[in-house]
Write a protein that binds this DNA or RNA. Sequence first.
DNA 1: TATACATTCAACCAAAAGGTTGATTAAATA
DNA 2: TATTTAATCAACCTTTTGGTTGAATGTATA
Lengths: 119, 119
Amino acid sequence: MACHIVNHMVEYNEEMLTEILKCMSDVTRRSLLTRVCQEGPCRVTDLAGYYDMSLNAVSKHIKLLERCGLVTRKTVGRVHWIEADLARIQIVENWFKELKSIWALRLDNFANLMETKDD
Amino acid sequence: MACHIVNHMVEYNEEMLTEILKCMSDVTRRSLLTRVCQEGPCRVTDLAGYYDMSLNAVSKHIKLLERCGLVTRKTVGRVHWIEADLARIQIVENWFKELKSIWALRLDNFANLMETKDD
DNA sequence: TATACATTCAACCAAAAGGTTGATTAAATA
DNA sequence: TATTTAATCAACCTTTTGGTTGAATGTATA
């Protein structure tokens, strides 16, 4: 299931896919990710200010984003700076690519079969 | 948040993203999707045979895949033929693309700011 | 027609997810 | 030093998710 590391390719496996896709499937976490992409490094408290939920809830969302590598954290004194890291998106894109190629391969085989039939 | 429909672009909104990403975040559903990509139209019972869970559980997974448009169903008599439809993947890819462009835009702005500072 | 087969529906259950509040830790500041 | 500030930890609650089983529906077949 896992693919080979080639050049700058990012490896993927089922557990990583599950973690990343599950993480991205929440609207608040997608919003947080978008925000840190737009604004660069943000403090947890400032991020929480945008949402109609407790600081704790946002803190937990950030922890999940961090756990699957979609954001990174730099702690400076008591302030935690949260920054986006979109590299992991490649893992999902690789899966999409593989899925599409599997799909295309079958259609190719089907086309060949039809051709053979015509002989 | 929703983007414009341009040519063959597939529109997206938060609800669709949530639905599709949540659907893809389950390992059994990803496996089912891969399988129907490989094998073309499959019967529910045959698909269920590959997994260590009840037919009912697989049936429910297929229903979720169908609900968010990742597979389609053709009912012929008592047999339901399940087929992959990867078009919806584009919705997620569009979001990735937008996110990356937001990210790149900010870095550009930052670079411009530095340049201005140098004047 | 009686029976087997393909699939879903409905009710249920345990675990996970997403939220809350209150306490805790540690750093900045009056 | 005492207090405020930044953030997490811990316990708890409700809803959702992913599974189960048994019954129902509809179609094919002996």
